[in-house]
Design a binder for these strands. Structure first.
Lengths: 349, 349
DNA sequence: CTGAAAGCGCTTACAG
DNA sequence: CTGAAAGCGCTTACAG
């Protein structure tokens, strides 16, 4: 590959002049240099430029699982903004593992200008380490305990959980179960809290055997739904706290030939491309996905502009939205559980 | 950030010695150096190492759409192998655009050690340019006309298309339609060819108005299915050539309240995570996904080993597999179309 | 085993 | 406007 020296020699100037020309400065021998560049098919070495400038022009993106449609959409959103800049994305998957995340982050620090991260747990310490290294960091989807000093694009998970709970209550359910995500994760914890809040506010209790915690993966949704259905008194409604667990739960219900929503109502968190096409079409709490990724990337790129570099952390909290489809309905035989009474809001379909 | 000079100064040795120690060579002042490294939290600059070695240790991955579950799975497969190496992945989305692909590739050439690409069209010239630049290139999912000199991990698309056609024929269908993918793409062309081959071999003709070509996106599947259903004599069965278009077709059929498979059978290409949960569960031609990505990455990494660097191109062609679910069935009122006769293989459900 | 020196391919004050 | 020189942070023959 040709270097700037080769081009300079050919054009009869010094490397410095070629460099200046390439960066848009006025030079006398512009045509000669351009010709040399063309003939030799010269492209500056990004590595040499990086060493010189201290900038890599790459953004590290660390997500738990790229095959989760939510994260795929988020990454697409990020890509849609970098595509108009001269930044590129370096992608890493952590499989929800903190160790893996530590390893990834440690080596990214020296290779990227900034990082967008969906941390594996709220307790992660590595992000502090990243900040100390002077690498701008933005959280997406998930937060850190005490992470207020970092930029973040999140969703109002508590409200989302509440929406799910209130929806089931409004249909008249009182025997309600939750399949929550990892509790050391912002969305896992908050969605459950919001959900329980809604029930509590309505005087509906959620017994421990209905209050299950999974790990955001399909398999755990499957297993927990199975265990729920094998209870002596199974719930009449289930809230599942992410797309993958909802799919797992749906599979379990199908395997058991459960009638949805006849025997049991199911509400999920995060819509799916196939949501309306499923058996039955899924009622879900939806939220922006591609937009979340785009916003996170914009937040990060701002940090590279001197005027914003030292701004206070920006925390963007987006709203969730209930999408009612056919997987939820009033319970078939409304029971008057002791103390629960008529908790519904009177809305019927 | 500490540099190797800082560490050397602190340990009382020369930078060269620190460098040797770091690379595992025996040195006298090992402990002193290790201590300095720890205290200063020193990590070598990847950029400086790259400039020196000429290797970036990053792999460029270029796909048309990361939110297509097939490509998400492929990327995950790649990640599962790089994770055990010291290579990382730089990801780019092309949105099926050749121009975008050209741009991405052009700048990747100077930044990565190798590239895995699912080319936007079979006519792409850029890959030749990549090869001329001395950057190893592996195709995944899609091939290039005259691309035999490149490593590739593909699938037997022709056979897959044939399987789809034979399945519909075996059910007794004779009024059959195809929604194909871009015809300047390997999978788009081959799947259609295989499909048509199967019909032709059985003496079944596919009229032009049933032989539709889309662009692998959901919207085109939707529109084309719509147009198929509005025909005076709509088909009794549709083959849709990828996951997204199948979803689109399914949506169209739902919107028209079409009974599947009663009025119309639908068979897709590429399974979905939600495949069994859809209304109705989808019959599809399936193929390995994660494995395809992993294999492509292994092929590429081999090129970095001297012993294999100059081997002939390795072309891995994987097999497809029919998964029969509930979206296909015999046509409701088998017509004896002139010349078609009983083309079924006699199998009935 | 170790250090001084050169070099990887750029960019940018510093003089002119 | 332009060139020589120094420097970005490493690594590696070359002597010793």
């Amino acid at each position: 590959m040709a270097t700037i020296h080769d081009v300079a020699a050919r054009a009869g100037v010094s490397p410095a002049t070629v460099s200046r020309f390439l960066r848009g400065q006025r030079v006398r021998s512009a045509e000669a240099i351009q010709a040399a560049v063309d003939e030799m098919d010269y492209w500056p070495s990004a590595t040499a430029q990086s060493l010189q400038s201290g900038r890599t022009h790459t953004i590290g993106v660390v997500v738990p699982d790229i095959t989760n449609p939510y994260f795929a959409a988020v990454v697409k959103g990020m890509e849609s903004v970098t595509r108009h800049t001269d930044y590129r994305i370096q992608l890493a998957n952590t499989d929800e593992s903190s160790e893996r995340e530590d390893a990834v982050l440690a080596e990214m620090i020296r290779r990227v200008d900034g990082i967008i991260l969906a941390p594996a747990t709220e307790q992660d310490q590595t992000p502090m380490y990243v900040r100390d290294a002077g690498v701008p960091l933005v959280f997406v989807d998930r937060d850190l305990l005490g992470g207020e000093h970092f930029d973040a694009v999140l969703v109002n998970n508590t409200k989302g959980g509440r929406q799910a709970g209130e929806h089931l209550l409004s249909l008249g359910h009182t025997r309600i179960a939750a399949i929550s995500g990892s509790q050391d994760t912002t969305p896992g914890r908050c969605r459950r809290e919001g959900f329980v809040q809604a029930l509590t506010a309505a005087g509906v209790e959620i017994p421990p055997e209905h209050d299950l915690v999974g790990d955001f993966r399909e398999e755990s949704g499957y297993q927990l739904a199975l265990s729920l259905l094998s209870l002596p008194e199974p719930p009449t409604a289930i809230f599942s706290a992410n797309n993958l667990m909802t799919l797992g739960a749906l599979k379990a219900l199908h395997d058991l030939r459960t009638d949805i929503p006849g025997e049991i109502s199911l509400i999920g968190f995060d819509d799916l491309d196939t949501g309306p096409l499923l058996r039955p079409p899924l009622t879900v709490v939806d939220r922006p996905m591609v937009e979340q990724g785009a916003l996170a990337m914009r937040l990060l790129l701002r940090r590279f502009e001197d005027q914003y570099a030292n701004d206070d952390a920006r925390r963007i909290i987006l709203d969730t939205k209930l999408i009612e489809r056919a997987s939820t309905a009033p319970p078939r035989k409304p029971r008057t559980a002791a103390g629960a009474g008529r908790t519904g809001r009177g809305r019927q379909r």
